[in-house]
């Protein structure tokens, strides 16, 4: 990670000094949106409204700058939260200013309404896409990957024969794979699970093998001089030194698993899944549902990533 910068706060930071500006900016943008909602038609001279939005955003940026000073918890979290909130509010106001139809870009408030209205179906879609396809595929791919890596390290011949292929296959684009796998396996969720498993498998194999081989010569020699059995060597030296590599692969794959499940669904489904929902609603100009599905997918994706990162911190403290 980054080198620790040597910055000692001399004076006590003023963490709250950004609040008035942030509040002013946020409430101002909110007010603009409400005012626009009261108009019967989008304003005839949008330039004035645009100016208002930009000015309020500028205020917000100053507020964010102010609140980012210092090392308090607030200084670390407020800027990011404020950025998201102000961004969403500004988008809302701008879309209303220009009267952009929902069929092209829906306003965030409309997306939230649709998300709530379609919650049961979206949850069902998320169940298919995340649990059955992404998570199951992730688990299968990772388990197979670990197993293959163990074999590859145990048998040099396999390592030399298999690993170059794994490195090659990990750069196969999933969109080229998906139509063929779906044709061969069928439209149901298992075809997507397989695609996810394949895309997870190769990075895990490559990283695990690299990790298992990363054990330092000195440690291995030491174990050797203790007359440790191969199992002991593995448990005490090889596996601990491989874990960080394994987790790197798992973290990267965790985000790819969900994205790949969604993309694979574009190539055919049995009428379930977030990718299916996105595809069908784009065709019907129901872009509010499309964005709602993307919001659901993002929340799940981020949570899954954080979960794996947390597991890594639990298992590998101090890294």
């Amino acid at each position: 990670m980054a080198t620790q910068r040597v910055t000692v706060p001399l004076a006590a930071p003023r963490p709250l000094s950004g609040w008035p500006l942030l509040l002013l900016s946020g409430l101002g943008l909110l007010g603009l949106s409400f005012a626009l909602a009261r108009l019967a038609a989008p304003p005839t001279s949008p330039a004035l409204w645009l100016l208002g939005v930009l000015l309020l955003l500028l205020l917000g940026i100053f507020g964010i700058r102010q609140s980012a000073q210092g090392e308090t918890l607030a200084a670390r979290t407020v800027p990011a939260a404020a950025t998201l909130i102000l961004f969403v509010l500004a988008v809302e106001a701008l879309l209303r200013t220009y009267g952009v139809p929902t069929g092209l870009i829906p306003t965030p408030s409309k997306v939230m309404q649709s998300l709530w209205a379609a919650r049961s179906v979206l949850l069902q879609d998320a169940y298919y896409t995340f649990i059955l396809e992404a998570l199951l595929g992730f688990v299968i791919g990772a388990a197979l990957g670990l197993l293959l890596a163990l074999f590859a390290v145990r048998f040099r011949f396999l390592e030399r024969g298999l690993l170059p292929y794994a490195a090659l296959l990990s750069s196969v684009p999933i969109v080229a794979l998906a139509p063929v796998v779906i044709k061969a396996v069928g439209l149901g969720w298992p075809s997507k699970t397989i695609i996810v498993a394949i895309t997870v498998l190769f990075p895990v194999v490559i990283n695990t093998v690299r990790g298992l081989q990363s054990a330092q010569r000195m440690h291995l020699d030491l174990m050797h001089s203790y007359a440790a059995s191969p199992t002991q060597v593995f448990r005490e030296v090889r596996w601990p030194s491989a874990l960080p590599f394994v987790f790197t692969a798992l973290r990267v794959s965790s985000t790819l698993a969900l994205i790949n499940a969604i993309v694979a669904e574009f190539f055919g489904t049995e009428g379930h899944g977030l990718g299916f929902r996105i595809q069908i609603e784009v065709g019907r100009f129901g872009l509010d549902i499309v964005w709602a599905a993307i919001v659901v997918a993002s929340v799940i994706g981020i949570s899954f990533y954080l979960l794996i990162a947390a597991a890594q911190r639990r298992l590998l403290p101090g890294r």
């Binding site: 139509p179 439209l187 190539f267």
Partner: peptide, 16 residues
């Protein structure tokens, strides 16, 4: 296909 119907009577299958 309907995003408001949870138990449809016909199973819609989309394909390319």
């Amino acid at each position: 296909l309907d995003s408001t119907v949870a138990n449809p009577s016909v199973q819609a299958v989309t394909y390319p």
